[in-house]
Design a protein around this nucleic acid. Structure first.
Length: 677
DNA sequence: GATCCTCGAGTTCT
DNA sequence: CTCGAGGATC
């Protein structure tokens, strides 16, 4: 269909006018016309496009209202990787950052761009000749998901860049966020519909952006802040980060007004303070600030460490804390009979998650922190995950506050509770007579690193033990789908899945089997060492305490635990029953532990999430190459492999000067070893 | 006997 | 992830 030129021109004029009003409204927060006028222009354009569909260009504002649902998101490889940032949690780490920059650049005082660290979702927008052609999530930094349709519904994202000299190609980096008020509105609506609330703005933004139906995304009022540029072609990148931000603003992106140019470490800390006191009054959530060396020319020279640039750092606000009332202290019984006090809290939102329980570790800890039942306590999410009671609010102690006493009888089985004089934990003496310990023993037996029985979770084990269907791990192998299906929350299908999983667990390895037995002080590493040393189970069962103690890494305490375990008639019977049921493993060449001439002897530590390998895969490959994987960083560690969001081990490694690898470097190293094998 | 290193055990919420 | 404690080393 030929479109009359007058309509083409009119559509063009309407697009530009609407885009401008859109910018005034959503980015500048300063509308130039009343809503009714905007709506009139919008409808006129919609009508034109309905009559002449070829007028509906991808940069048309009508494309913002959402399109037909997709079936899945396509994978997108970023032209330049989206890096993560290293974190600083206190002043010392900021000082160290500034010192490193000064040493590397030779500058006496460094100029930094200070910016906000938004609590949202990092996004890459690709514009060709000024038109938005693709928007993608960060993903693992190299590959993300194509969410272009959904991003078009975000009004603060220009569909077409403003200005005359727009680059041939530009990747704009920024954060999609959900303002606090919108999150509250959305959560009220979710509650009214009987659906789950979103715990925090990041989840809400991510959930909204990952909608296959972009009309849902359009209904959630997301916004976008730009903070950087990936690749740029056809125009030079401004020489300073502050100029880059100004440039993005001229392209009609929303750039935070809270950005500052600061100098030296005093400038950084002053900025941190200033933003910290403003935090609560900002209309959106932030979890810290970001410092970037302002002069771009230093960026490449400073280089990268494991996917994070050295020229920038995120200074995070301290873990969020909240005050709530501790209404009770319950006692849990663990696999070894250890009684662990757990604080029952009035539900409270900490760092975006509702917390109701927090471990108190042991009696001494409760006394040290002077915690009474009914006290008001400060709760924090330590290491960003596990809730922790920091301490009590002393001047809010209620009259009815009362001390906690460790029970003298096990709350589950009524056996005596003992606490050895040199130990911090109290233990139930009931052993496997105690249902709690029996349940934990069975759960441990079935756990992923032991026999790996999928679907045998806490709920199911509770019922199996309570109804007397299973008393020992061996009895698991007698279960059939029919009796399982009679249990609560067990349909025919899941029942047969569990039976299937139990049957296939019969083929295992000796190391896993020894670990699964749950011998005190024998974990995964020791179990594997025992399997390699003895080669078969009967030799281990017959081994004397003295001969066990001579094995490297096994001392008197562990040797006694093992000898005691196998001296117990009941344990030997369970093992025999397991073998009769068909549990078996490949024979191990005894003494294999000392083999492997190719062993590189290197020690690795893993931290953070790797983009492609799982932790287990990485561990298996490293061990297959003859190196060791350890859990903690020390002076003897050769390499630390850092993934996305590495933990404290990463900082420790940096402190000790241990070589840090990313996944790619790890794979290269492994290939080198495998070739020389 | 002191110190460093490694392993085991326990834990929260979605 | 963190803490506590067992084992090795000097």
């Amino acid at each position: 269909m030929i479109v009359p030129p007058a309509f083409v021109a009119r559509a063009q004029a309407l697009r530009e006018e609407i885009a401008y009003h859109n910018y005034r409204y959503y980015v500048l927060d300063d509308p130039a016309v009343p809503d009714s006028e905007y709506d009139r222009l919008f409808r006129e354009l919609q009508d034109l496009e309905a009559r002449f569909p070829s007028l509906a260009t991808p940069d048309s504002p009508t494309q913002r209202i959402g399109a037909l649902p997709l079936t899945q998101f396509a994978a997108v490889t970023h032209l330049t990787p989206m890096l993560s940032l290293n974190n600083a949690f206190d002043e010392d780490e900021v000082q160290a950052f500034d010192r490193r920059i000064r040493e590397a650049t030779g500058l006496a005082s460094v100029a930094y761009a200070g910016e906000l660290k938004f609590d949202g979702l990092a996004i890459n927008l690709t514009y060709r000749d000024g038109i938005l052609v693709q928007g993608a999530t960060r993903g693992d930094g190299f590959t993300g998901e194509d969410v272009t349709q959904n991003l078009r519904t975000v009004h603060a994202i220009p569909l077409r860049l403003a200005g005359e000299d727009c680059p041939r190609l530009i990747e704009v980096r920024g954060e999609v966020i959900m303002p606090k008020a919108e999150l509250e509105r959305l959560n009220r609506a979710q509650t009214a519909r009987g659906e789950r609330e979103f715990a925090n703005p990041r989840n809400a933004a991510a959930g909204s952006l990952r909608q296959l139906d972009s009309r849902i995304t359009a209904a959630r009022r997301l916004t976008f802040f730009a903070y950087g540029v990936g690749r740029i072609e056809g125009r030079a990148l401004p020489a300073r980060q502050t100029d880059i931000l100004d440039y993005l603003e001229t392209l009609r992106f929303q750039v935070s007004e809270e950005r500052r140019l600061v100098h030296g470490v005093e400038g950084l800390l002053g900025y941190f303070q200033a933003i910290g006191s403003k935090r609560a009054s900002l209309p959106y959530e932030i979890d810290g600030v970001v410092y970037k060396v302002n002069e771009v020319k230093y960026h490449e020279a400073l280089g990268y460490v494991a996917r994070a640039p050295r020229f920038a750092i995120a200074h995070k606000f301290p873990a969020e804390e909240a005050v709530t009332q501790l209404v009770d202290i319950a006692v849990q019984v663990g696999r070894t009979g250890a009684l662990t006090p757990v604080a029952r809290l009035k539900p409270v939102l900490v760092g975006g998650v509702t917390v109701t329980n927090a471990t108190l570790h042991n009696e001494d800890e409760i006394r040290r922190k002077d915690i009474l039942i009914n006290d008001f306590v400060v709760v924090r999410r330590a290491g960003d995950v596990i809730p922790e009671v920091v301490g009590v609010v002393a001047d809010r102690r209620p009259r009815d506050a009362r001390a906690f006493a460790m029970p003298t009888l096990c709350p589950v089985c009524g056996s005596r509770v003992v606490r050895l004089s040199d130990e911090a934990v109290a233990r139930c003496t009931g052993g496997l007579y105690c249902p709690a310990q029996r349940k934990q023993a069975i759960l441990h037996f079935a756990s992923r690193r032991a026999m790996d029985i999928d679907g045998l979770g806490e709920r199911l084990v509770d019922q199996l033990v309570d109804r007397g269907l299973v008393k020992t791990p061996a009895e698991l192998y007698q279960l059939d789908a029919q009796s399982l299906a009679r249990l609560e929350r067990m349909a025919q299908k899941s029942a047969s899945n569990v039976v299937q999983a139990i049957q296939s667990s019969k083929a295992t390895t000796l190391g896993r089997f020894i670990y699964a037995l749950g011998i005190r002080n024998v974990g995964e590493a020791t179990a594997k060492a025992l399997a390699l040393h003895f080669g078969d189970l009967d030799a281990l069962i017959k081994a004397s305490e003295a001969s066990l103690a001579e094995i490297p890494d096994i001392g008197p305490v562990v040797a006694q635990s093992i000898a005691q375990f196998f001296a117990e008639m009941h344990n030997r019977e369970v093992i025999a029953a397991l073998r009769r049921a068909g549990v078996h493993w490949e024979p191990v060449a005894a003494g294999a532990a000392h083999g492997r001439a190719s062993a590189s002897g290197k020690t690795f530590v893993l931290t953070g999430t790797l983009p492609h390998l799982t932790r287990e895969e990485a561990k298996a490959r490293i061990e297959a190459a003859g190196a060791r994987v350890s859990g903690s960083v020390s002076a003897r560690t050769d390499f630390v492999v850092a993934g996305i969001e590495p933990g404290s081990k990463y900082d420790k490694a940096r402190e000790l000067g241990v070589t840090i690898l990313d996944e790619r470097q790890l794979l290269e190293w492994l290939e080198g070893i495998e070739r020389s094998d």
